[in-house]
C-alpha cells in the first residue's frame, strides 16, 4: 500500500494552483486535508501525475461572515470551523452536523471543501450544503463561477467541478431564527452515515434533507404537514430516494430510517 509516483507542488499562491490545474488538468489533484485523497493514493485507486498542496495558502484559510452569508475558504479545516466562535449562532446546522464527520484526528486535518469535492453520498458536509442551499465557489485560470448546492452534486462522488477548477470556498446562508435538527445513524461512531437527516424550519414550512440514501444528498420542502399526510409524504420521499442494499444496511432499513427520523426531526423543528 504505497502511493504511485507523482510530482508534488507546494503552492505559494492561488496562481500556482490554477496554473498547475490548467497545465495538468485531469492528471492533477488538489491536496487539501488528505483524509480521503491520501487513502485513495495508498490503495492506488488514484494515479495523478501531480499533487497540488493548497494548505500553505493563507488566503484560503479564512472564515468570513458578510451580512447574511458565511464564506468558508478551501483551506479551512473541519476543526477550524468547529472552533469558530460564531458557528452556533450563524450556522447552527453545521454546528450539529460537523462533529459527525469522522473523528477528532481526521477533522483536525480534513477540510470542509475537500469533503464537498470528494462528494461521498454519505458525507455530512455535502448534506449540510444542500440543506442550507449554499453555493460552491469555483475558479480556474480564466474565470470564477458559483454553483448552487443542488446543481453541484452530480452523482456518487461526481460533481459539477471541471478538472481545471479549484473550489476556492463555499458560501452558506445565515438563516435568521431558523431551528435546525440533525441526526445520523452509522454502524459505529464516526463512520460514514447509513442515513443522515437534517431538518430546518422554513418560511413556508419545513425542509428535510437526507444523505446516505440516494447518489447525492437530497432536500425536500414541505408545507406544515401533520399526521398521516406527513407519513405519506415521508414514505413517498423515502421510496423516491432509490435506496439500495450494501454490506452495512438494506434498502428497507434505510427507508425505515428516513421515515422515522424524518418524522422525529420535523417534529423537533416545528414544535
Amino acid at each position: 500500500m504505497k502511493p504511485p509516483a507523482f510530482d508534488y507542488l507546494r503552492a505559494e499562491s492561488i496562481g500556482d494552483v490554477l496554473d498547475g490545474l490548467a497545465q495538468q488538468g485531469g492528471d492533477a489533484r488538489v491536496l487539501a486535508g488528505g483524509q480521503s485523497l491520501m487513502a485513495m493514493l495508498n490503495m492506488r485507486l488514484a494515479k495523478p501525475k501531480l499533487l497540488i498542496d493548497i494548505m500553505r495558502l493563507e488566503e484560503l484559510r479564512k472564515i468570513q461572515r458578510k451580512g447574511d452569508t458565511v464564506i468558508i475558504g478551501a483551506g479551512v479545516r473541519q476543526a477550524d470551523l468547529l472552533a469558530w466562535p460564531d458557528l452556533v449562532d450563524a450556522l447552527p446546522l453545521v454546528a450539529l452536523a460537523l462533529p459527525w464527520v469522522g473523528h477528532m484526528q481526521t477533522r483536525s486535518r480534513g477540510t470542509i471543501c475537500g469533503s464537498l469535492a470528494h462528494a461521498d453520498p454519505s458525507a455530512e458536509m455535502p448534506l449540510t450544503l444542500v440543506a442550507l442551499g449554499g453555493e460552491v465557489l469555483l475558479r480556474n485560470a480564466k474565470r470564477r463561477r458559483r454553483v448552487a448546492a443542488k446543481d453541484f452534486f452530480a452523482g456518487m462522488m461526481l460533481t459539477a467541478r471541471s478538472d481545471d477548477e479549484l473550489i476556492e470556498g463555499i458560501s452558506l446562508p445565515v438563516i435568521k431564527g431558523s431551528r435546525a435538527a440533525f441526526r445520523e445513524v452509522a454502524r459505529r461512531h464516526g463512520d460514514f452515515a447509513i442515513v443522515a437527516c437534517a431538518a430546518m424550519k422554513t418560511s413556508t414550512g419545513v425542509r428535510l434533507a437526507v444523505g446516505g440514501v440516494a447518489d447525492v444528498p437530497t432536500a425536500r420542502d414541505w408545507p406544515r404537514l401533520e399526521g398521516s399526510a406527513l407519513d405519506d409524504a415521508l414514505n413517498a420521499f423515502a421510496y423516491e430516494l432509490g435506496a439500495r442494499d450494501d454490506v452495512h444496511a438494506t434498502a428497507r432499513y434505510r427507508r425505515d430510517l428516513v421515515r422515522m427520523i424524518g418524522r422525529d426531526l420535523i417534529g423537533e423543528v416545528l414544535q
Binding site: 423516491e240 444496511a249 428497507r252
Partner: peptide, 29 residues
C-alpha cells in the same frame, strides 16, 4: 447482529410505496 437484518423481525412488512410511485425489485442477499 447487523441492525438492518432485524427490520423484518421487529417491524414486519414495510409500508408499501405510494400508488404509482417507485417500486423496488427484491434483491437476494
Amino acid at each position: 447482529l447487523v441492525p438492518a437484518r432485524l427490520a423484518e423481525l421487529v417491524r414486519g412488512d414495510e409500508p408499501p410505496p405510494p400508488a404509482g410511485g417507485a417500486t423496488t425489485a427484491p434483491v437476494r442477499e
